[in-house]
Design a protein around this nucleic acid. Structure first.
Lengths: 243, 243
DNA sequence: ACTATAATACTTGTATACAAGTATACTCCA
DNA sequence: TGGAGTATACTTGTATACAAGTATTATAGT
């Protein structure tokens, strides 16, 4: 798809995706990782040449990324916004906001099946840890939270999630790849936290949920640091984009 | 733009918009109003013919509407989801959620300028009432809430608003047009409510804010009823879409 | 040296062409 | 009458062509 040999986004997750989606996924990763620096101006023609596709899917990708707030479409060219620490904290604000909302709804529902589903996902996360598969772990981690959010059947909360998910996923991917290499011991804590979350949902224990959610989010700081390290590593290993 | 003579969306608001945006705005209004019924399957070719434009802007419009959850893109054709009472309540859930979040941030800020800006907007709403201009009133009403939401400078909260705004605006437009004709007395109450909201922001009075916010949202039920009446009126007055 | 103006090399937005895939309807056969 | 298979008329996804607008650069004149 592109002259760049290395893809940041797992290619096997794109089996059914259109070219436009593929471009969006890959471009998103390059922006989140800092490979494409904030402030860069992207032109449809140049991107089309780089990815060796026509402008149609490029345009589609740019619209998607613009709706996710990581680029801004202007009269001439798309300006990369990227993710500073501020933006990352804001993303977690929103995630906290919607997951809290979701939990309030969950309290009024039967959560047996949900807890079961989450246990299954957590088992898969453990397997991924065991086999050192950062991407698979990230996938299941994202799925864990998506399962919770979708469970209440609230289409507009789901809509927010859908908008947030791609960037979220990218962040988690980059962070987890780094941790699998350098902070392997983190994962016992992460698993424990998710177990706590499941318990809270099963017991409909609001306090426990808030506690585990916050501990989960205290990882944010770690995630941010990981991301910067990841960005540095990537930008050292790869030739910067010249015109 | 289209063979239909009557536009539901105010044309003067589209002066700088691209064809794709125009189509999105108009299509959105037809869907929200019920002119295009939920369950209808839209084809790009047919829409392109109807609006007398090419498929490019149509595709763009459909992506936009899909991201707003009022249509669903499938393998063949886009299925209209529309707004049932459930969806409308969900929209207000989200609005309540983000405006509450915003208020918590506002408490920690200097709200003098914001209160001033809101007073100006409210004055404009009063003028719109005086001159019986439902569209202008709607515009200012939406702007009122947008001003509040943007004031905290939270890009991801703003992102949610941007996603919600078009549908919100459409709902308000249809509802206000109806009320200007049939429930003119409503507006003294609406103005009063907005004044209360400004007071709450100026005084950073959480309780007052919640109160006015909820009274504001108690209009929801009214809005929903208005919408149904509006839908009936429209579908009687206009020939249904045939193939 | 500097400004104004004109040429040019870009940009996006829209229309059109083509390819590949899918549902429908029809025909042929039993 | 019913069913398998094929033809056909759709669908979307992608590439390309063209038009209109904008920034930049170069040139000419003072």
């Amino acid at each position: 798809m592109s002259e760049y040999n290395d893809y940041l986004y797992p290619q096997k997750w794109l089996s059914k995706a259109s070219t436009g989606d593929r471009v969006a996924y890959e471009l998103r990763m390059r922006i989140i990782s800092g490979l494409i620096e904030s402030g860069t101006i992207l032109s449809e023609n140049k991107l089309a040449a780089d990815f060796e596709v026509s402008r149609s899917p490029i345009r589609e990708a740019l619209r998607i990324l613009a709706s996710e707030n990581i680029i801004r479409l202007e009269k001439m060219g798309a300006v990369v916004i990227g993710l500073s620490e501020k933006e990352i904290e804001e993303i977690y604000d929103v995630r906290l906001l919607i997951e809290t909302f979701v939990f309030e709804r969950l309290i009024k529902m039967d959560t047996t099946n949900l807890a079961l589903e989450l246990s299954k996902t957590l088992e898969m996360m453990k397997v991924a840890i065991k086999y050192n598969d950062a991407d698979e772990f990230s996938y299941q981690d994202v799925m864990f939270h998506e399962t919770i959010i979708r469970s209440i059947g609230h289409s507009y909360i789901t809509m927010i999630w859908n908008n947030l998910k791609p960037v979220m996923e990218g962040l988690i991917l980059l962070s987890m790849r780094m941790r699998f290499k350098e902070k392997y011991e983190d994962f016992t804590r992460i698993v424990k936290n998710h177990e706590l979350y499941i318990d809270a949902i099963r017991a409909k224990d609001r306090e426990l949920m808030i506690k585990s959610l916050h501990e989960n989010f205290d990882d944010v700081q770690g995630k941010v640091e990981d991301l910067w390290r990841s960005q540095q590593m990537l930008s050292k290993g790869v030739e910067p984009q010249n015109d």
